[in-house]
Write a protein that binds this DNA or RNA. Structure first.
Lengths: 176, 176
DNA sequence: CTCTGACATGTCGAGAGTGGAAGGTCAAGG
DNA sequence: CCTTGACCTTCCACTCTCGACATGTCAGAG
């Protein structure tokens, strides 16, 4: 049920069309809550039907500019304050770690090395993002920066862990 | 498509029934790849139909003991070696951070404090798990320990981040 | 002997997410 | 004038996940 709140949250900042929203999902929210076109447009329709959004203006090419309503804002606030986030995490990377035993030691070490490289690359990418984005003082910028800092810490931790884990596996006597 | 490989991976270690598998999902894999009964039994059926698993024995109460086949093992190995993990991550916690601007400063700080507490609690829980599990030398134990170490590092990082973020928000002049 | 609790498998429907196809408008450049 | 590319929305078919429900067996306690 988070997609609906992601849409509400983006529209709390400024009005936008489905097309605009897609760009926001692909840039700022890409690493946090990805969404496809079909999802976004579908959700806009439902939200408007439920009165949480309204069509503020219609532009050329059938463009519909959506704006959040009072009850939409209330719903967003209540989601933020009254409900606890769902934290079911699925990590395919970690799932694979459980089964590394079916591989040879060398193959397992390779897997962990690749994971360390990937984390390092992602870390650099986020650093690039941090440098390139021009951070304003609007809500999304201020708090988006906090989210980016999380990503930086996460990828750094992942790299350290993968290197440590590789060492752990390598240290076991080659008694496979 | 990871559920199928999770099942194959568990059965690579030892044979098991759907019921046994559920217990493994609820204990070892709970934090990495949760699954429900209906999913597990459904997947077992499909996997057996595809020849990646076979019913090794039938026990009382209709119990079916599944074992991985040669082609199942090949599929598992190829998944581990030839394919890169899907790393689409969704974090409702982080999504909320983006929208903290619609709340008052105090409410935002409360949110981040709760998040720090939650991470700390989860960290302790994992430490308890580490102490209570009796770690053998089997594959799942050896590599499961690496996964647990990841969880420990993750929750520690989350707590630090949340406390830092709370400080960041608090430091801004109360000009809301 | 009967009750209870662990063992054990299965079906169904609703909702979320994925990927792509289809259809149409407008502005600007060649 | 005509093509191209950006703009913009809608629909569909599919898989995955969740939670509840249905069905039944077996061992041990009382």
């Amino acid at each position: 049920m988070s997609l609906r709140h992601a849409v509400l949250g983006l529209l709390a900042d400024r009005t936008a069309s489905g097309y605009d929203l897609m760009k926001l999902f692909d840039s700022s929210l890409a690493n946090v809550w990805p969404a496809t076109q079909s999802q976004v447009y579908g959700e806009l329709g439902k939200l408007a039907g439920a009165g949480l959004l309204e069509v503020a203006a219609e532009g050329p090419r059938g463009r519909k500019e959506y704006a959040i309503t009072e009850s939409g804002l209330a719903e967003l606030r209540s989601w933020l304050i009254d409900t606890r986030p769902d934290r079911t995490r699925r990590s395919e990377t970690l799932l694979r770690v459980f089964f590394l035993g079916v591989l040879s030691r060398v193959e397992a070490i390779t897997y962990l090395s690749l994971e360390a490289d990937r984390a390092a690359a992602e870390h650099e990418e986020l650093e690039g993002l941090e440098a390139s984005v021009d951070w304003g003082d609007d809500q999304i910028s201020v708090y988006g920066r906090l989210a980016l800092a999380y990503g930086l810490r996460l990828t750094a931790m992942q790299q350290e862990w993968a290197e440590w884990a590789r060492g752990q596996v390598a240290a076991r006597l080659p008694a496979d």
